[in-house]
Amino acid sequence: MTEKIEIILNGEEIQIPMEWTVTDLVEDLKLVGQQVAVELNGQIVSRDRWQEETLVSGDRVEVVHFVGGGEE
């Protein structure tokens, strides 16, 4: 069994497998291809670093949804 770690996602504690990257998390949340940005410990992680940014215990992750509305 894979060891788990705890992170805080949008203010709630969740458990994820060790060694997960931001990409793994975004895939697990079914947000691939959506207009989301991921903030890790206070800074948005640029998309080209999602794959290499490994999450560690206690990380605070926020997922931000960019919406289209505004209306002309």
Partner: peptide
């Protein structure tokens, strides 16, 4: 990002969001 109904206000740092 704001939700005025739920009363949640949040700012997120974007200083390092530039993709090379």
């Amino acid at each position: 990002q704001v939700d005025v109904w739920n009363g949640t206000w949040q700012t997120l740092g974007a200083e390092r969001a530039k993709s090379q």
